[in-house]
Design a protein around this nucleic acid. Structure first.
Lengths: 347, 347
DNA sequence: AGGCATGATTAGATCGATCAAAATAAACTG
DNA sequence: CAGTTTATTTTGATCGATCTAATCATGCCT
């Protein structure tokens, strides 16, 4: 282990008191310029770093941000959160914070972990992901006045009074852009593959598609299918939609998993090409969501979320909450980012 | 925020001194059973949790394990580390540790971060991933006697004297199993797609293939191609290998990225099927490595690393290093796990 | 009963930083 | 130049736990 260098060591070398060293680091403006330099030189020479544990004892601030890491349930979409996590770690570091991980199988377990962590490590804030209807977690944190940001909008209808800071990606804007792209390419009858209504994210993404399609004069009714998220599910749903006589030539999907399934369905003989029509040679166009590695690998056009940006905004909101003077009257800020369409072979 | 409960509060409620409460939690055997119960009841009632910062001040132990989170360079293989990370977080929690994240662009930056973290947060140990030849990091940590484990063998030839604890997955065993699987299926001329020699992991994986092939009486010479890791690279290399007149009917690949490229190459007309031969109908078999989501999605047979297990072993080794009495004579332990072949359509 | 080892509990110091308030130095004012 | 104000630095207490060493009980043996 490295020999410990304390603030007292620096003080001794610089010929000042401990408190002056502390001031140089925390309130440089109250220290005379000359002493400041001298102290800084001593800090440099000894390689001094303030001990977080000791600082935390006095200040009550740990400079830790806690976040849950989830197992990639789906397998394909998992990497989205991991990329967000990477961005968060970088942004946090830039603001002098570190990221602490934890796991939890459900909301209740996560709330228990909040309690554990707050008692033991005292993280300054939490970042929540995968927000959903009637989220126990946000209510609990709001109640205890623990600072936090969510990556994902508060979808709950029941969050009547209190609200919180959040950052999200505008799914509807994304699917709208995808739909527009397809319309521009000459497609008219554009289908949608998504999840059963009830999930905020899913409904939002469907909305962007239907709105845009309707605006172009195409009735979206009957052109949408809902299924659980998975390649096989997507394939089945796509099959179903393409087999119908609606003349669907393109599909916008709520995830890359579904889109991948759709691609498979579109490739299966007798469906990808509509025999006897003038568009005979044109395969069904497919657009996914999240721009996962899979999309890149198989040439799937997809919507890319600005995850590093989102993470940076989360940190920015948190530092405002933490460092800024608490202005109780002010409504918590939030940020809505636009995804960008990454065009590849599939559309 | 939650109102803080200190050890003094518990002591007061239980009618004992602070130290007795501390003893109940840390050395239960020195406390009389009856008082122990009384204290535990008080702990329960107040929801007391020991404050890590304060404990750390006295004991010098933070109960933190630090690990780097890397951006998924490749995109496809990235998820491997993320799954490992998830396992690590779970195992660590079970042993009373938390995982602290950091980022670093190269070895030197990572060493700088070691210094930073050790000075500030004092993590009890590090977990290193992506070990490679002449790793600066392990040398630095060994020199400072900072406890750590690597996920990945020490490949360096230069680590003459000192060694360290490690956990790894036996790549050679994996490719050997894959090759055997292909041999059993009747293939004889089995090619290998890997990376330029010099990378420990890559050489190891190639070795398992060549050894097994040779043992089956097939000379591996000329059946191997080396390229950088990427789908396009894999496709090119596979093309090259299949175009040659060696009669390659199957490919073992060092990664799923390469394998995916190989699949593309195999599908391209005139290559997948060998016209005029009796095996005319049989497509080229392909096996990847890492069993990434992409493999699952496209039906690629691949080698799955037991990542959760590996993570658990890492934590086990660390706790031995940390909690166990330091036995300087003992050689650091290490664990080599076998990957398992997940058979899908591609082979 | 006195002497002593053993068991159980407690008081006081300490880890390394910051806060609060006091002490000292420098600058200003009439 | 005394009397203040302002700028700079220092002293002592404190955060919440554990360590060390001391204290208070008990039991056992001769």
């Amino acid at each position: 282990m490295t020999e410990k260098v304390t603030i007292a060591d620096v003080a001794r070398l610089a010929g000042v008191s401990r408190q002056t060293v502390s001031n140089v680091l925390n309130s440089p403006d109250v220290v005379r310029e000359e002493t400041r330099q001298r102290v800084l030189r001593a800090v440099e020479e000894l390689g001094y770093r303030v001990n977080q544990a000791a600082r935390q004892m006095r200040t009550g601030r740990s400079r830790l941000i806690a976040i849950r890491i989830e197992p990639d349930r789906d397998g394909i979409n998992g990497s989205v959160l991991d990329r967000f996590l990477h961005g968060l770690t970088e942004s946090a570091a830039r603001s002098g914070y570190r990221v602490l991980l934890y796991t939890a199988d459900d909301d209740q377990a996560e709330v228990d972990t909040f309690e554990d962590l707050l008692g033991a490590y005292e993280p300054d804030a939490f970042v929540l992901t995968s927000t959903h209807h009637g989220d126990l977690r946000t209510a609990w944190l709001l109640d205890r006045k623990v600072p936090f940001v969510t990556f994902g909008r508060p979808w709950s209808a029941d969050s009547a009074g209190a609200s919180h800071a959040w950052v999200d990606v505008d799914g509807a804007a994304g699917t709208a852009a995808a739909t527009r792209h397809l319309l521009d390419a000459g497609h008219r009858v554009i289908g949608f593959l998504g999840w059963p209504s009830g999930s905020g994210v899913g409904d939002d993404r469907r909305e962007g598609w239907s709105r845009t399609l309707a605006a172009a004069g195409v009735d979206p009714a009957g052109l949408s299918r809902a299924t659980s998220d998975g390649v096989a599910d997507g394939e089945k749903a796509a099959h179903d939609l393409l087999r119908s006589d609606l003349g669907v030539t393109a599909l916008v999907c709520a995830s890359d998993s579904l889109a991948l399934g759709a691609l498979h369905a579109a490739r299966s003989p007798g469906l990808a090409w509509r025999p006897g029509s003038d568009a005979a040679e044109r395969p069904v166009a497919v657009i996914g969501f999240d721009d996962t590695p899979v999309a890149k690998a198989v040439g799937l056009t997809s919507l890319s979320q600005p995850l590093a940006q989102a993470a940076a905004h989360c940190v920015a909101l948190l530092t405002t909450l933490l460092d800024g003077q608490a202005d109780p009257g002010e409504a918590p800020a939030n940020v809505l980012l636009e995804p960008s369409l990454v065009v590849r072979q599939s559309a």
